[in-house]
């Protein structure tokens, strides 16, 4: 049922066996709530070391898929392996390799930020130093503060700190930046990039397309319980080969042209002008454009 395009970095083969090397490997996943299939025959491989963003409208099955991988929900059909283990049978050893940042956050506590991290670290085999983690998420100044005195963005960073203190090989981030102001989101993105450098595989769900484009090695678009497409962000929905729009200013007026050969077109333009082409811009459809078209087509 999976639709793939020539531009997809790794075409999904519905009939192929589970990939034992993948961080997450899913074949034919089905989850029903009553009559409704929230996930309806999903195939997906997430490679070790990559950041994979799962996009999709509310109700498309993002959280259901992620929570099946995390071991929180059972499934009605299909095969799932997370770090080589079936999440329905994952034990303590398996959980010690995961970091989970839930959509709902970690809950209320009377403990200080550092006490929470120290307690969380003590459940894991090879945890990070809580103070190093505080430094990494930028909460060092708040180490002694209780959870309830933190701002929304600080609380979310605490959730991430709790998710990474166990030194996970695979980190789940379910809508990690909802409610962040733009500056907090930029800070969060640089945190995620530094985790990538430490070799952590990440599965991210988000509503923010700029976030997916900024962070993800590949994105997958979920619509009605199936993967509409998996691609690198710049190629999703044929973005890489779609006609480009070239615009410039000539004789005091704004000119635009749509072309499939923007390089040649710009070369021609450059030849017509003595120096710089005034106000030259070349644009492709944004990720948001192709995403909205993609989920619109399917719903």
């Amino acid at each position: 049922m999976t639709r793939t395009t020539a531009a997809a970095a790794a075409p999904q083969q519905p009939a192929s066996p589970l990939d034992p090397e993948a961080a997450i490997s899913i074949r034919g996943l089905v989850k029903r709530y009553g009559e409704r299939a929230a996930v309806d025959g999903l195939d997906l491989d997430i490679r070790r070391g990559e950041i994979f963003a799962l996009l999709g409208p509310n109700g498309a099955g993002k959280t259901t898929t992620v929570e099946i991988c995390e071991g929180y929900r059972g499934r009605d059909g299909g095969e799932v392996r997370v770090l080589g283990v079936d999440p329905a049978k994952g034990g303590r050893r398996w959980k010690a390799d995961l970091g989970i940042v839930l959509q709902s956050g970690a809950g209320d506590s009377q403990l200080s930020v550092r006490e929470l991290l120290t307690a969380q670290a003590s459940y894991f085999a090879d945890p990070r130093d809580p103070d190093e983690v505080l430094e990494l998420v930028g909460l060092t100044d708040k180490a002694g503060a209780r959870g309830r005195t933190l701002s929304g963005g600080q609380r979310r960073r605490l959730d991430v700190a709790l998710g990474i203190v166990g030194r996970p090989r695979l980190l789940f981030l379910d809508e990690p930046t909802t409610g962040f102001d733009p500056e907090a989101r930029r800070q969060f993105w640089s945190l995620i990039r530094s985790l990538r450098e430490l070799g952590t595989t990440m599965l991210l769900t988000t509503h923010y397309l700029d976030e997916a484009e900024e962070l993800a090695d590949r994105v997958g678009v979920l619509a009605r319980g199936q993967l509409a497409e998996v691609a690198v962000p710049t190629a999703l929905g044929g973005r890489g080969t779609a006609p480009a729009v070239v615009s410039w200013t000539e004789d005091g007026a704004r000119r635009t042209a749509e072309t499939t050969t923007p390089t040649a077109f710009v070369a021609e333009l450059a030849a017509r002008f003595p120096g710089e082409v005034p106000d030259l811009a070349v644009s492709r459809p944004t990720l948001e454009d192709v995403y909205l078209k993609m989920i619109g087509d399917r719903s």
Binding site: E70, G71, Y72, R92, R93, K95, A96, L98, I100, L102, S104, G105, A106, G107, D108, S109, Q120, Y123, F124, A125, L162, G166
Partner: peptide, 15 residues
Amino acid sequence: GERSDGTLKALAGTP
């Protein structure tokens, strides 16, 4: 309270 605010769920996801 710990069930409704997600504390229990978060704990269940740890080893």
